[in-house]
């Protein structure tokens, strides 16, 4: 019985995640089309809403071709690893108060470990295809992922310092007074740049620079295993946008502090106004709106900036973003201990 319940719970998270992946692809195409003064997909469904499903159906019905000299096991294992570990990150995300699959006390740590394994899928897929383009693409992608993971985890270190917990729900709830965007604004910008690079998006999509490397590590992959890569890429985009909004915008809490408003007029206790405020101040819609805005910014960035060179990519990581992050890693603990504002871990109370 408990197994069935946990399977249903898993499906309840994974299926909406995959559907939202489909709609993110459509929104990307439509938004980029209107930024470039085109129409974009408009044939399938109303306003082209079902375009992604038609594409997925087409890809699934195609014949898959494996190169003759490829390492067949690793060739198919790579996309599977990438997709599974991209979806595993959704396990620890709180969507609303009390709405989560796992309230793991090391949730952030779990997400880091899972994203560390997901890198292997790209590396294996590129190596096993026995093609120069795929191999170079996977090497570029892996170098990029390892470098930018350093920045992401250093910024996470500071978030953990200010919240005092590795638990995702504690991180969200400790932003009830003010979201961490205020004390950590420079680090949010660093984290956002890092997360664009971590998901291999333009302008950092050197792994699939089509002018140099056909389509990067997935050159040889076709049909359903290509769908795996496609889903994994967009699932990790949504996941990292959710992570951004959890760490810096307070997750499911509303960005305007409604509890202050309700404190102002204590005379009206159980009115509709108060009920409404208590619903608005922590509801999954907040998380959805924040994440959607961040996904839009991802698409906006893709439509705006040209692709940078690979040596520029690496020097931006190691010579620009990393020194700033390390400077803040030195500064913030000193300020915290100088002002004696050590965070209180809610889970220990």
């Amino acid at each position: 019985m408990s197994n069935i319940i946990s399977i249903i719970q898993g499906l309840l998270v994974i299926v909406p995640a995959l559907i939202s992946v489909a709609f993110v692809t459509i929104s990307e195409r439509k938004v980029m089309a209107s930024m470039q003064r085109r129409v974009g997909p408009n044939a399938v469904g109303y306003y082209g809403l079902l375009q992604a499903f038609a594409d997925a159906l087409k890809l699934l019905l195609k014949e898959y071709v494996a190169p003759t000299q490829a390492n067949i096991i690793l060739f198919f294992l790579g996309p599977v690893i990438t997709l599974i570990f991209a979806l595993l990150g959704y396990l620890v995300i709180p969507y609303a108060p009390g709405t989560f699959i796992s309230d793991h006390r090391l949730g952030i740590f779990f997400m880091l470990a899972v994203s560390a394994i997901a890198t292997y899928g790209i590396l294996l897929a590129g190596w096993s295809a026995n093609s120069k383009y795929a191999f170079l693409g996977s090497l570029r992608s892996t170098a990029q992922l390892i470098s930018y993971e350093l920045i992401l985890s250093s910024v996470l270190l500071l978030v953990i310092l200010l919240t005092g917990s590795l638990n995702v729900i504690t991180i969200v709830e400790s932003q009830k007074a003010v979201s961490l965007l205020l004390p950590l604004l420079p680090l949010f910008i660093v984290f956002f740049i890092g997360s664009i690079a971590e998901t291999n998006r333009a302008p950092f999509d050197l792994a699939e620079a089509e002018s140099e490397l056909v389509s990067g590590f997935m050159t040889e992959h076709s049909a359903s295993i290509f769908v795996f890569f496609f889903l994994a890429e967009y699932a990790s985009i949504i996941l990292i946008c959710i992570l951004n909004s959890i760490l810096f915008f307070g997750g499911y809490l509303s960005i305007i502090v409604f509890s202050i408003i309700s404190l102002l007029d204590l005379s009206r206790e159980d009115t509709l106004f108060h009920v409404l405020i208590s619903i608005i101040s922590s509801s999954p819609i907040n998380l959805a709106v924040k994440t959607s805005i961040l996904v839009f910014v991802f698409i906006w960035v893709r439509a705006s900036f040209p692709r940078i060179r690979f040596d520029q990519l690496m020097s931006v990581c190691w010579l620009v973003l990393l020194p700033i992050t390390i400077a803040y890693v030195i500064l913030l603990p000193c300020v915290v201990s100088g002002l004696l504002i050590n965070p209180v871990n809610i889970s220990l109370l």
Binding site: L331, C334, S337
Partner: peptide, 16 residues
């Protein structure tokens, strides 16, 4: 980047 991060980083011990 390196100049200002050195400044920000050296503000840490000063703050302490």
């Amino acid at each position: 980047a390196i100049f200002y991060s050195l400044i920000i980083g050296s503000m840490g011990p000063v703050a302490l």
